[in-house]
């Protein structure tokens, strides 16, 4: 992928940061307003997919590499499991043992906020990887298949 025209690339450079911030807002305020880890994670993943579509895969991989996506994907799942395990020490799996705080505050509702963040990491990593797998690996393997046919 080489990327698109100069206009698209300039606008994308300008807009991506705002999309990431909006996604982070959706994640962090998931326990107070509509949204949550999954929706916010998809928005952040969409920002980097936009970057890849507009600027090409070299720029996108330099900002958010494939390996980083793998690490985010795995740590998100493990952290979510660990949050459940912390509850296990106090009684049962996914027991809400963290301090609940005051209602309608950002730092409230115990394990729901960290669980949202963990799910967001997981969703960002995995959806970015799905896109790279379907859009880039496939093109490469298609070409290699054709080359195999010709040789």
């Amino acid at each position: 992928m080489k990327g698109m025209t100069l206009i698209v690339r300039t606008i994308t450079d300008f807009v991506v940061a705002f999309i990431v911030v909006f996604g982070a807002y959706i994640v962090l305020y998931g326990h107070l307003t509509p949204g949550g880890g999954f929706a916010g994670g998809v928005i952040i993943a969409c920002a980097f997919i936009l970057l890849m579509l507009a600027q090409g895969k070299e720029v996108a991989f330099s900002r958010f590499g494939e390996k980083t996506a793998h690490v985010l994907d795995s740590t998100g799942a493990l952290v979510f499991l660990a949050i459940g395990g912390v509850g296990l020490t106090a009684g049962f799996f996914f027991k809400n043992v963290f301090g609940r705080g005051e209602p309608f505050r950002l730092l409230s509702s115990g394990m729901i906020l960290p669980a949202n963040i963990a799910i967001a990491f997981k969703v960002v990593g995995s959806l970015y990887l799905v896109f790279t797998a379907l859009a880039i690996f496939r093109r490469r393997s298609f070409r290699s298949m054709i080359e195999d046919e010709l040789t």
């Binding site: 326990h31 459940g84 705080g101 005051e102 509702s109 115990g110 669980a115």
Partner: peptide, 16 residues
């Protein structure tokens, strides 16, 4: 749960 968004309270606490 003290979570103002009930949907999140259900999917991440009651139904985690």
């Amino acid at each position: 749960t003290y979570a103002a968004n009930l949907v999140t309270a259900i999917i991440l606490d009651f139904r985690a």
